[in-house]
Design a protein around this nucleic acid. Structure first.
Length: 104
DNA sequence: CTGATGACAGTAC
DNA sequence: AGTACTGCCATCA
């Protein structure tokens, strides 16, 4: 596996996230083959294709991304469009909507 | 090829 | 409990 494959893995995983569910950066990084590269997932999200539902990624606390185009508010709107409940503190109930591709 | 960057995570205070 | 600091590692310029 070359290093660039990490990016493809991440994109594939994000694409596999069903509507109404989310995944954490660290989780995706681990599944993509590089545990600890959570930040990289964020970087890929920033420079990656706009065809992908990057808004379905949140940090482990369930807080929304600060660098999302348009800010956390835009991120919130995108998630709510998917039917995800976002609290007023701009965070989600990770435990309820977390998604594990391999687990089910 | 080398250095800087960051849409995180974990630990410490 | 909330805030601050450090570690991590693929990507970008």
């Amino acid at each position: 596996m070359s290093a660039a494959d990490f990016r493809q893995e991440v994109e594939a995983i994000v694409k596999s996230i069903p509507k109404g569910r989310v995944m954490t950066y660290g989780q995706i990084a681990a599944i993509a083959g590089s545990p600890g590269a959570a930040r990289i997932v964020g970087g890929i999200a920033h420079y990656g294709d706009s065809d992908i539902a990057w808004h379905r990624i949140v940090n482990k606390r369930g807080a929304l991304a600060s660098g999302y185009p348009g800010g956390r508010l835009a991120h919130k709107v995108a998630l709510e469009k998917d039917g995800v409940i976002v609290s007023t503190k701009l965070s989600v109930k990770i435990k309820d909507i977390i998604w594990w591709p391999k687990l089910n």
